[in-house]
């Protein structure tokens, strides 16, 4: 009986270990397959010609994705400029000003909205924001600014939720101490609460960036996908993700390899951002 039980325990433990290792295996597979598909091109065309090349004409042998790297960062920063102040104010309002009732309603409501599919955001952007930009700012409306606005809205729930949590975790005594010294509520927030929650807020911004740079379908709907680096807010642009999604189904041969090289570059950027957010910032704060 006892032997049987211990055998069973051993089997269970082995199975669970295999399960646990499976996520590592999956990560490994993803890396390996994207690398295997994408790296031959780096060897053939040269790392420099891909990452710093200006011309993307994969059926004619040019695989430069530099404009897309720049464009990806431009929309990401654009999204942050719009999403970060709004999201942070919302988080501060929720934690410091709103009553308990309102908090109970608003917090889950905002998190529910994080579930709205990105294609819906993209669609509404095309219907409402693109014509606005076209009529008031000029250009076709499919532009850097429209994309930044939509991505800025899309990353709001991420920023609000994570910065709210980190602001809430600032001990009450800090605030009480500040009030006791005669500080106003705003002085307390500005001088005590936000600096103490700094690392969490920063992490929320970086995770928001990660979401913005990885977003695909909404972006190809609204960005216009031109290959040039945008020179003004109303110029169209193509991101790394957009490049993959636009052409993947069509691509064969070197063209497909080129898209996988785009994938490698995207993967490296995303991993770096996540590493900074999860390990660099969170760990230092512990």
């Amino acid at each position: 009986m006892n032997e049987k039980a211990s055998l069973k325990e051993r089997v269970v433990k082995t199975v669970l270990t295999i399960f646990a290792l499976s996520s590592l295996l999956f990560l490994f597979l993803i890396f390996i397959f994207i690398l295997i598909e994408g790296s031959p091109l780096f060897l053939k065309v040269g790392l420099k010609n891909i990452i710093f090349g200006f011309k993307w004409a994969p059926t004619k042998g040019s695989f430069g994705i530099f404009p897309m790297i720049i464009s990806s960062f431009l929309v990401t920063f654009g999204a942050l400029i719009i999403g970060a102040p709004l999201g942070l104010s919302c988080a501060i309002y929720l934690s410091e000003y709103s009553g308990k009732r309102l908090k109970m309603i608003l917090k889950p409501a905002l998190e529910l909205l994080a579930g709205i599919p990105s294609v819906v955001y993209g669609f509404l952007g095309v219907i409402y924001i693109v014509p606005l930009v076209r009529n008031y700012l000029g250009g076709s409306g499919f532009s850097l600014i429209s994309t930044s606005i939509i991505l800025g809205i899309m990353i709001l729930p991420t920023i609000i939720s994570i910065s709210f949590d980190s602001i809430m975790s600032v001990p009450k005594t800090y605030r009480e101490g500040s009030y006791a010294m005669g500080a106003t509520k705003w002085q307390t927030i500005y001088k005590i609460v936000v600096p103490s929650a700094r690392s969490g807020i920063l992490a929320s911004f970086i995770l928001g960036m990660g979401r913005a740079i990885g977003e695909t379908m909404a972006v190809i709907m609204i960005a216009g996908n031109a290959l040039k680096i945008p020179m003004s807010l109303t110029d169209p642009l193509r991101t790394l993700t957009g490049n993959i999604a636009l052409e993947l189904a069509y691509a064969t041969g070197d063209h497909r390899l080129g898209l996988f090289s785009t994938g490698i570059v995207l993967l490296v950027i995303i991993m770096a951002l996540n590493y900074i957010a999860n390990f660099g910032i969170k760990r230092r704060s512990q």
Partner: peptide, 23 residues
Amino acid sequence: IRFGVESLAGIPSILYGLFGFIF
């Protein structure tokens, strides 16, 4: 393992699409 899980969580869906497509 935790690092692996965190990394998987951060990968954008288009890269899952790319991987699923090739694999």
